[in-house]
């Protein structure tokens, strides 16, 4: 009896080894991952007979660095934000990409085809609020600071990135001037001074699901949030609204971890994810803007208006300056920590 089981188990093990290759893809979890499963993981594994091991992380580069340094690379493809992509690329944590294997580079928007990264989507940090609880609709970050008209707590992401930009935008700095001002010591002081005014009313979030939950529970009246989360909550029937004016957008990219044992398969996967028909499915599941220019025309017009890349939404928006955050990130995060902890 036991022999039989053992033999069966061995056969099953052997069979699965023959049957499918494995690819570990690690992305930011939650709704984003669900959409990736539908648009990329499942069709790719069906078409190529590959088992995709779908992991999640919060973008901590420490894990990737430890893997590369010890040579125990368990992850193949990772989703990273722009500053991490550039930093990781120059530190040698990611494989340089051979774009001849990844599809048509010309189809991709400008910055989406870089040395180590292939853009997945454009996402945006927006102002969101519960429209049933506010008498008057806020128009931008300046209203976020207006505690008289809109009493109650507000939520912001607990990081210098986004928070300092939002503070300066609320203080009347124009989108074009944003990073020029923030690059000066006076600009940073100005941002912190503006934050001082609101500090007692801020509740800080770290995971993208938190601000939505707080809007539902009534802990906060307004919040900064990832636009995809807000639309998803709207679909669930919550009366949330988005203010696109003053939104800050950025791109997430796929990168292959240096020393990945499945590099060829990883390239195949990225090429698959770059295709417009797959990006269309992703954008229709969670409203983040596609990086393949051909995908936009294929997307359901109803969804198109929710994307950060829709022309109306881009009007008051500003892209996050990757170079600025690479150069000043650590210094400003340190100061932000010290400020927040007081």
């Amino acid at each position: 009896m036991f022999k039989k089981i053992a033999v069966l188990a061995l056969m099953a093990g052997a069979a699965s080894q023959v049957q499918a290759q494995q690819l570990t893809v690690v992305s930011f979890g939650g709704l984003n991952k669900q959409a990736q499963e539908k648009a990329f993981y499942q069709p790719f594994s069906k078409a190529n007979n590959v088992d995709i091991e779908a992991g999640e992380f919060n973008g901590e580069m420490a894990k990737i660095k430890a893997m590369v340094e010890t040579g125990q690379v368990g992850w193949d493809v990772v989703e990273v934000e722009s500053p991490e992509l550039v930093r990781g690329c120059s530190e040698g944590l990611f494989e340089p990409l051979d774009w001849s294997k990844l599809g048509d580079k010309k189809q991709m928007i400008d910055s989406a085809a870089s040395e180590c990264g292939a853009g997945i989507f454009i996402w945006s940090t927006v102002l969101a609020y519960d429209s049933t609880k506010l008498a008057k609709a806020p128009a931008g970050w300046a209203d976020f600071w207006d505690v008289k008209t809109y009493p109650g707590k507000r939520a912001l992401r607990k990081s210098a990135k986004f928070t300092l930009e939002i503070a300066l935008l609320a203080d009347g700095v124009s989108q074009g001037q944003l990073y020029t001002v923030l690059a000066t010591p006076e600009g940073v002081d100005r941002a912190f001074k503006k934050l001082d005014q609101l500090k007692a009313n801020i509740q800080w979030w770290e995971a993208g699901a938190q601000p939505m939950q707080w809007l539902v529970s009534g802990d906060v009246v307004m919040t900064s949030a990832y636009n995809g989360r807000v639309t998803a909550a709207q679909k669930e029937g919550h009366p949330f609204s988005i203010v696109w004016n003053g939104s800050l957008y950025d791109m997430d990219s796929w990168a292959i971890v240096k020393g990945s044992k499945n590099k060829a398969l990883a390239e195949k996967y990225i090429a698959f994810a770059n295709r417009p028909e797959n990006q269309k499915v992703f954008a229709e599941t969670i409203p983040y803007g596609p990086t393949n220019t051909l995908a936009i025309a294929q997307i359901d017009p109803k969804v198109r208006g929710d994307l950060p890349t829709a022309p109306a939404n881009l009007k008051g928006a500003r892209s996050v300056d990757t170079d600025f955050w690479i150069e000043h990130g650590e210094e400003l995060e340190q100061r932000f920590n010290a400020w927040a902890a007081q």
Binding site: E60, A62, K63, K65, W204, E333, N337, A340, A341, Q342
Partner: peptide, 18 residues
């Protein structure tokens, strides 16, 4: 943010800023 203890910053430096 004003209630974080020392280990929070250990984690911050380990994971976030490396």
């Amino acid at each position: 943010p004003g209630d974080q203890m020392l280990s929070y910053f250990v984690a911050f430096y380990t994971n976030t800023t490396i």
